[in-house]
Design a protein around this nucleic acid. Structure first.
Lengths: 292, 292
DNA sequence: CTTTGCTATAACCATTGGCTATGGACGTGC
DNA sequence: GCACGTCCATAGCCAATGGTTATAGCAAAG
């Protein structure tokens, strides 16, 4: 029969205390719970471990025989787990990012990731929008935080869904509005992602909500370039609500835009990539995102 | 953290098959159940044991490190249990009896007792009624099947409750009745237990149902003596219904008696006696009696 | 005889471990 | 490129388990 090591731990504690009540206190369970578990164990074994005497319990001959076995198993298990934990192949997980992630996600996920794969390091790298896969396509990133839509060959798990808004200079004529209807931006020059960004560039130009071609004032390849261009009056740009918070600065105004579906930020990985460090991070992030 | 050895057995099976589906078949559980258990184990450990690949699973470095630990624990546990089982102090349990026990009880209880304390032998000994404790008082029996009422210093667990009837010669004038009212026996000479049986002798004379003194024809000290006296026409005797079945013979008639409370057969042991072999037998009998 | 200390059982309830059904991912063959 | 087969993972459900509190039974001490 298979036994739970917890039952062995209970057995050892009772054997050392020779008193179920004291052992229960030591184990932080109630006395009836411990009494019951011992009875269950004895029944499973088919022989008694203790003789009940008025002052508590006494080990039977068979209990005496099993006690060192129980101690041995508990010790070997604890040591074995530590050894296995230390056997983690250390390395570096490269996380690509198109924008800062923030949103309380990455820190908690990284903690869980490191617990699961002790010894592993993490490298964060900002990837320009000229690579909409966040570095996955050329293998320079192991996982990446990127916005949908994503290129072929990439798998995703959405971790945040946010409304899109417009970032504009603080003195822009539309800055007086609480929220901006998308058609009001029809004639505004836009700051766009590079052409090679394809569908991603289209998304942040709002092409899903218009059928004419927007005016593109300038292209930018990183969030810093984008927001610098905005405050310099070179155009406006659609951004995710969360990013507006992350990149807020003097001279910049952000207003929600009505009439646009929201943007989705996802953790992404290469199709078919099941390496432990990738799976571990994705799982950690799933758990963290679920709790948010 | 404590683990169930069943989980380690699952881990080992999957590690050997490198395929959760095949391992599940080998373990006689469903594939989703096994998959789930592995996930739980990995989460408890805080690191992965397997990398999921298209053809099944591959052991991670940490899984490889833990595999021998798991095998070792399983092997040591199995061996330790066998060793402890064999450590049972062999001896002989002496069971005293005032009458044959029959009733399907003893055989099943003895089987369970032997399973729990392998190597122990059992000795059955018939104890005369001159000792109403069935041999417990002088320590010649470890446990005893005796009828209530019992002497001081004896603890009991009732295993059968049966109506009392009268045993008489087959040609007795009352043998024509289907059942005998107790007052009809008022003038019959009784076969009695020895005087030292005290309350037990009184009980089987039916003193709890009459206030005059019965006529005692003869005393007898064992069931054989009792029934031989009956068929020899020396008197009648109150007996338990089950005993009438056990001791039936030519020339003997048994009829239920109305107006008498039933008799109770119990397994008995000395007050304060918690020796393993005594507890084991009492427990075994409790389980058997419960299922009847 | 009463009180104290100890283990065991009953009733209850949240969690666990198993099931079936089915989804998602990947490789292979056409 | 699509359909199919194989594999693992998740969802929903339910019986069994492991914990609780309340309390019973037993033995020793005062």
């Amino acid at each position: 029969m298979d036994v739970h090591l917890r039952e062995l731990r209970y057995f050892v504690a009772v054997a050392e205390e020779l008193n179920v009540t004291r052992a229960a206190e030591r184990l932080f369970v109630s006395q009836p719970a411990l009494s019951k578990q011992l009875r269950v164990l004895e029944r499973q074994l088919g022989f008694g471990l203790f003789e009940r005497v008025p002052s508590g319990v006494a080990l039977t001959r068979q209990g005496e025989a099993l006690l060192p076995v129980a101690r041995d198993l508990l010790g070997r298990w604890a040591a074995g787990v530590e050894e296995a934990r230390a056997a983690a192949p250390a390395g570096t997980l490269v996380i690509g990012m198109q924008t800062a992630v923030g949103r309380g996600l990455q820190q908690a996920a990284l903690r869980r990731f490191r617990e699961r794969l002790p010894g592993w390091e993490v490298s964060l790298r900002l990837v320009g929008w000229d690579d909409p896969s966040g570095g996955l396509s050329d293998g320079s990133s192991d996982v990446a935080f990127i916005w949908l839509p994503v290129p072929p060959g990439v798998r995703t798990h959405v971790v945040a869904t946010e409304g899109r808004g417009v970032a504009m200079p603080a003195d822009h004529r539309l800055a007086g509005l609480a929220e901006v209807p998308f058609p009001a931006l029809r004639d505004e020059p836009f700051i766009a992602l590079p052409a090679v960004a394809g569908p991603l560039r289209d998304f942040w130009l709002g092409l899903d909500a218009r059928d004419d071609e927007p005016v593109v004032g300038v292209t930018a390849n990183t969030p810093e370039e984008v927001f610098e261009a905005v405050t310099s009056g070179l155009g406006v740009v659609l951004v995710a609500e969360g990013n507006a918070e992350l990149y807020s600065r003097p001279g910049l105004a952000y207003r929600p835009v009505t009439g646009l579906p929201p943007g989705e930020l996802a953790i992404a990985w290469r199709e078919g990539d099941r390496r432990p460090q990738v799976v571990a991070f994705i799982d950690a992030l799933r758990q963290v995102a679920t709790k948010v």
